[in-house]
Simulated scan of single mutants.
Amino acid sequence: MTDFLETPQGRRIAYHLTAGKGPVVVFLGGFKSDMGGTKAVHLEAWAKSRGRAFLRLDYSGHGQSSGEFEEGAIGDWAEDAEAAVSALTEGPVLLVGSSMGGWISLLLAQRIARVAGFVGIAAAPDFTEDSMAAGFSPQQHDEMERWGRVVLPSDYGAPYVITRRLIEDGRNHLVLREPLRDIGPVRLLQGTADEDVDRTVALRLLDHLTGDVRLTLVRGADHRFSDPDCLALIEAAIDEVLERMA
């Protein structure tokens, strides 16, 4: 059954919390995805089989949470995740961030001292600036200036409406321009056939983070990173980080 949490900002966030031993594993999904996705549901079942505490959630404007997607931005979604982790978990936390969830994870790791490990799956820090805004055509720049939004095609369903607020708010939450604290053991997973997040992003993040950080490149894996072999790699990465957090 889905539960709901009201954030300090007044947003109603849907979540599923599995009780169990710590450290708590928290799954943070990607841009316009929800907690019903393959990886989130698979990892919840994995956690239950291990007696492990696990949290998955929908950011505002996503899934069953309140709000409209087009009105949201990185800062809002980071606040949603921060509120959920702060209110619903205790003790050390391992964040598992997929795509945009990797960016959200890095923001949370700077705000919540209990975050003591991170697994990034095609992590996409700073993508609104380095991928979206940097890739706008002159016509799209004109559209953004005139209408405050640009519509981009998506391989995952309806086109993405990219708002001026999303881009400007993203600039206020960049994580690859300034040093980040050592957040404990980090494992990064990246597919070589990912058409949404280039492997150079993973390499840049590998160089930017400090401490125990390792990157695994998987030949032929795409952005979904959710076939049986990829899911097994995610499980193994979580196990390795949990062992090193102990």
Rank of each mutant, 00 (worst) to 15 (best):
D76M: 13
L108G: 10
E143Q: 14
P159A: 03
R111G: 03
G101M: 11
E71L: 13
S105H: 09
E129S: 14
Q64V: 04
E79W: 12
A158W: 05
A124K: 10
A109K: 02
Q140V: 07
G102M: 03
A81P: 02
L57F: 15
A124Y: 05
G117D: 00
G72M: 12
G72I: 05
H141M: 10
G102I: 00
D58R: 14
M100N: 05
S105Y: 09
A78R: 07
R56M: 09
T89L: 14
I121K: 00
E90H: 14
M144R: 05
F69W: 12
A87N: 12
V85P: 08
F136C: 08
L57A: 13
I74C: 04
R149S: 05
G117F: 01
A134G: 08
W103P: 02
G75C: 07
V161E: 12
A73I: 02
A87S: 15
E129D: 13
R56L: 12
P159N: 04
V151Q: 02
P92N: 00
G97F: 08
V115F: 00
S137L: 06
I74F: 04
R146F: 01
A78D: 04
L88N: 12
V85E: 03
F118D: 01
W147T: 03
A113Y: 01
D58C: 07
V150F: 08
V119G: 12
S65N: 01
P92M: 00
G157A: 02
E82F: 08
G135K: 08
G117E: 04
H141A: 03
E82I: 03
G72Y: 04
A124H: 08
